[in-house]
């Protein structure tokens, strides 16, 4: 029992929570945006992989860390555009298209990575984002090190939650976006083109997914290796349901999730006799449980997965 308290009492553990949560926050916000305008984006797993690779590659070839984040965002947006053209313009199955994007984006990332680094026993590293203590605030006892001694992309992720929460609920654009996810015909009647809005939003959401991937190689770790995203994208898709499609709850979900992850990582080192695989299963099992818990309460955007064609019902 005292072991558990030791873990929960350590500042390192709580600091890790926010770090682990960051890629999930980016990814969950990305999925949330896409689904709010009515499009499921299962491309996330591949887009995160591509973001991780291209972010790393940019910095590895001499670019600045923020240039790496930007490259990941742009790369994400390009794959988002592809997804949007196929699902919004052509109205193809969002499930299958998303999976196709994931398979394509991840194998393409591995291909480019292997071209850049033909043979390597240990993947080459880059100098990652350092923790940036916010002047003044980081000196607050306990809270300072936990909240205000993170890397810059983590602050960005937190700021994005606020921006999206405000944008979706307090601006005309946000209203139009939410309406597009509920009833695109009504949006069209208002003189707003739901197709353009969907394309733009999917690109923005996919850019966030790319940045979430880049956080993995540029802040959480310092190198890229295949299969490193490890289902984080799928977890984000589950977190959006848990969040009931609200940015604030998405943050809560990501933090809760990261808490369990940080906790199990530390528990592994102190608990003997329990196979480590059981601990590693925890994130995936928790995601499934979160889906079950929320399935009844979930109010899915009404037009989710329904292609919109003008003049067709």
């Amino acid at each position: 029992m005292s072991v558990l308290l030791d873990i929960l009492g350590s500042v390192g553990m709580w600091e890790a929570v926010l770090r682990i949560a960051t890629p999930l926050i980016f990814g969950t916000l990305g999925v949330l945006l896409c689904e709010r305008v009515g499009v499921l984006n299962l491309g996330i797993e591949g887009i995160m992989t591509f973001g991780a690779m291209v972010g790393w590659l940019t910095v590895y070839s001499g670019g600045d860390l923020w240039l790496g984040m930007l490259a990941a965002a742009l790369g994400g947006a390009v794959f988002g555009l592809l997804h949007a053209v196929l699902t919004v313009v052509f109205g193809l199955s969002q499930h299958v298209t998303g999976l196709g994007i994931t398979l394509f984006a991840s194998s393409f990332s591995y291909y480019v990575f292997r071209l850049a680094v033909p043979t390597s026993s240990s993947p080459p590293t880059v100098e990652p984002f350092r923790a940036y203590p916010v002047p003044g605030l980081s000196e607050i006892p306990v809270l300072g090190p936990i909240l205000f001694t993170q890397t810059a992309p983590t602050y960005l992720a937190l700021a994005l939650v606020a921006v999206l929460a405000y944008g979706l609920y307090r601006t005309p654009l946000g209203l139009a976006m939410r309406m597009t996810g509920e009833n695109p015909h009504a949006v069209d009647a208002q003189g707003i083109d739901p197709i353009r809005l969907r394309i733009g939003t999917i690109m923005a959401g996919s850019a966030l997914m790319g940045m979430g991937g880049a956080f993995l190689t540029l802040a959480a770790f310092n190198s890229f290796f295949p299969t490193m995203v490890q289902g984080r994208g799928w977890i984000c898709v589950a977190l959006v349901v848990f969040a009931l499609w609200r940015p604030g709850r998405a943050l809560l979900g990501a933090l809760l999730f990261a808490f369990f992850d940080a906790f199990q990582l530390r528990l592994q080192t102190v608990v003997d006799g329990v196979p480590y695989q059981l601990f590693l299963m925890l994130p995936y099992v928790l995601s499934i449980l979160a889906l079950i818990a929320m399935a009844r309460r979930a109010r899915v955007p009404q037009a989710l997965m329904q292609p919109y064609r003008r003049g067709e019902r």
């Binding site: 289902g231 349901v241 695989q277 059981l278 995936y284 995601s287 499934i288 889906l291 079950i292 009844r296």
Partner: peptide
């Protein structure tokens, strides 16, 4: 079963179970 009983979308659950299955094999 989760879909029929609770209305949980099977896309995400089957995807997540892939990771659980490989970890179970490893175990």
């Amino acid at each position: 079963g989760l879909r029929l009983k609770f209305g949980v979308d099977e896309v995400v659950t089957t995807l997540l179970l892939n990771f659980v299955a490989v970890l179970f094999v490893s175990l």
